[in-house]
């Protein structure tokens, strides 16, 4: 039995070596994504895979499950099995740097999507969602919607996630300038709809007199909205989210959520795949960082948007 396994493994390895330099074979692109446990990243990964295929490449999606160690395994496997490029959504700005360097040393270009890594030269290009600026715009809208005064609640995402704090900081960089806007509670709901509903229910007991809720993603905004509905407060309290997920877009359309920030995972994923394509064709001078702006979506411009992007 042991022998058989070893034989199988070496066959796989050989097969990997065989296609690496093969001329007739289509080149292979690995898509390593931080998690598939969140629809936003599923969309990002699938769009990247679809674009790579459309450009004539083979592609495969690897799920790091928010685990930098697992991500490291994926990189090693991708390098060993002869992938020619990696479209990469990092789990951690600092922790992922070493993985990207490993690929670079093996001569495999890495193109970062949505989240950046803390290194100037490891990745070939970085196409990033500008969460921080997006939340500045959301903050401005929030201030306006609340008329510069009132109590509000902030629902944070996973507190060990860079994105959680990027969004929170962007928002506070605006809102904290208004002394009559008071944050009465700041709690984490882990980017999770159910947790957000429960946390919001409890917060409402302590602070029934709030005027607004800022949630770090749309799932939490939807959960908060449901808690507000159950408490009979829906419509009186402004709720804003972040992402541009389908549920949130529909909710804004129905006049429920006040606003969300639309990121463009489709644009990001397709640009990354196109960069890889151009790299294969010889291009080397990619901008180190390409921020993709985030649009604020509210009732006034909702007609232009659909889930995860602009209407065509």
């Amino acid at each position: 039995m042991k022998k058989l396994t070893i034989a199988l493994v070496s066959m796989i390895l050989l097969a990997g070596c065989g296609t690496r330099d093969g001329n007739g074979q289509p080149k292979k692109i690995a898509i390593v994504v931080s998690t598939l446990n969140n629809p936003w990243f599923v969309f990002l990964a699938q769009t990247a895979a679809a674009k790579a295929k459309a450009l004539g490449y083979e592609s495969k999606i690897f799920d790091s499950q928010n685990n930098t160690a697992l991500e490291s395994d994926h990189f090693e496997n991708a390098i060993a099995s002869g992938y020619n490029a990696i479209l990469f959504n990092p789990t951690d700005a600092k922790g992922s740097v070493i993985n990207v360097k490993k690929a670079k040393d093996a001569g495999i270009p890495v193109f970062c999507m949505d989240r950046e890594i803390d290194s100037r030269d490891a990745a070939t290009s970085q196409i990033l969602s500008d969460s921080y600026s997006g939340c500045i715009d959301l903050g401005k809208l929030f201030v306006k919607a609340l008329n510069k005064k009132g109590n509000y609640v902030e629902l944070l995402g996973i507190v060990s996630d860079d994105n959680t704090w990027n969004r929170s900081k962007g928002f506070h960089s605006v809102v904290d300038n208004y002394p009559h806007l008071k944050m009465v509670a700041q709690q984490s709901a882990d980017f999770d709809r159910n947790k957000a509903m429960e946390v919001m229910e409890s917060i409402l007991q302590a602070h029934p007199d709030i005027d607004g809720v800022f949630a770090g993603n749309d799932a939490m905004a939807m959960g908060a909205w449901q808690a507000l509905t159950a408490a009979g407060l829906a419509g009186k309290i402004k709720v804003i989210g972040f992402d541009g997920a389908e549920d949130a877009i529909n909710s804004i359309k129905e006049g429920k959520l006040t606003a969300t920030a639309m990121q463009f995972p489709k644009t990001i994923a397709e640009l990354a795949a196109t960069d890889a394509d151009e790299y294969f064709k010889g291009k080397r001078d990619f901008p180190h960082k390409l921020p993709i702006p985030v649009d604020v979506v509210s009732a006034t411009n909702i007609d232009k948007y659909t889930a995860y992007g602009k209407k065509n």
């Binding site: 969140n38 629809p39 999770d192 709809r193 159910n194 509903m197 799932a219 449901q226």
Partner: peptide, 11 residues
Amino acid sequence: RLDSAQPNAGT
């Protein structure tokens, strides 16, 4: 309760 089945429910 959520009027929605979340793929990451129950984690």
